[in-house]
């Protein structure tokens, strides 16, 4: 079964083509790495896949993006969050709550998960990302790597079928990169579908397929 299908996708900003007739198919359980130089349209591709283009980011757009056979444009906000989770590059602009617990609970509250189930999922995510000791800490007090792990926990709490990573390691130090890479390896082994973009080869060891853009 196909998790993500991109058909003849073209995106341009103010007449400047970033992607032209790009097609891609990602199967369920696959971990695909998209590699390319800075500015070649990697992030744009992810933004289009998760529906931020053209909903939030204005761009000229043609082609189709299907998530498990459904057009991404036709997914509601809640459905989209349950199907797709994305970790962006900069952890600073992805954390906006007072504590790690609140951060993980934020998405769950939005999709109206009952309190008990929420508590269970928060517990699981803290354990999965080794952040149990920081449950009530402020995100401001964490290192870059820890922050990105919190973002990952917050995204995974929604149990998305597909995980998208937009240069998620690029702003981390070596220790942070190693820790996050290990988390991602575990997710891949569990069979989570992943689409990662990166401008270097840091995520190559996790990928089951590499696509050069």
């Amino acid at each position: 079964m196909t998790a993500i299908e991109v058909k003849n996708l073209s995106v341009s900003y103010d007449g400047y083509d970033v992607l032209r007739n790009f097609s891609l198919s990602v199967g369920v359980g696959e971990a695909v790495l998209i590699r390319g130089l800075s500015g070649c349209g990697k992030s744009t591709l992810l933004h289009a896949i998760c529906g931020l283009i053209p909903d939030v980011i204005e761009a000229e757009y043609s082609g189709e993006v299907l998530i498990f056979g459904t057009l991404v444009k036709s997914l509601s906000v809640a459905e989209r969050a349950k199907q797709l989770g994305i970790v962006f590059q900069n952890p600073e602009t992805q954390l906006f709550c007072d504590s790690i617990e609140d951060e993980i609970a934020f998405g769950l509250e939005n999709i109206c998960i009952p309190h008990d189930e929420m508590a269970q999922r928060i517990e699981q995510m803290l354990k999965l990302t080794n952040m149990e000791n920081f449950r009530f800490a402020s995100p401001k007090a964490l290192s870059g790597g820890q922050k990105q792990r919190v973002v990952l926990a917050a995204v995974l709490a929604l149990d998305p079928k597909v995980l998208l990573l937009d240069e998620a390691l690029s702003q981390l130090d070596r220790r942070g990169k190693d820790a996050l890479r290990e988390q991602l390896r575990l997710l891949r082994n569990e069979g989570r579908t992943m689409l990662m973009v990166d401008h270097d080869d840091e995520l190559m060891s996790i990928a089951s397929r590499i696509v050069n853009l």
């Binding site: 906000v77 809640a78 995204v155």
Partner: peptide, 10 residues
């Protein structure tokens, strides 16, 4: 964008 992808205003 981050809030949106975590189902804000769903």
């Amino acid at each position: 964008m981050s809030m949106d992808m975590r189902a804000f205003r769903a």
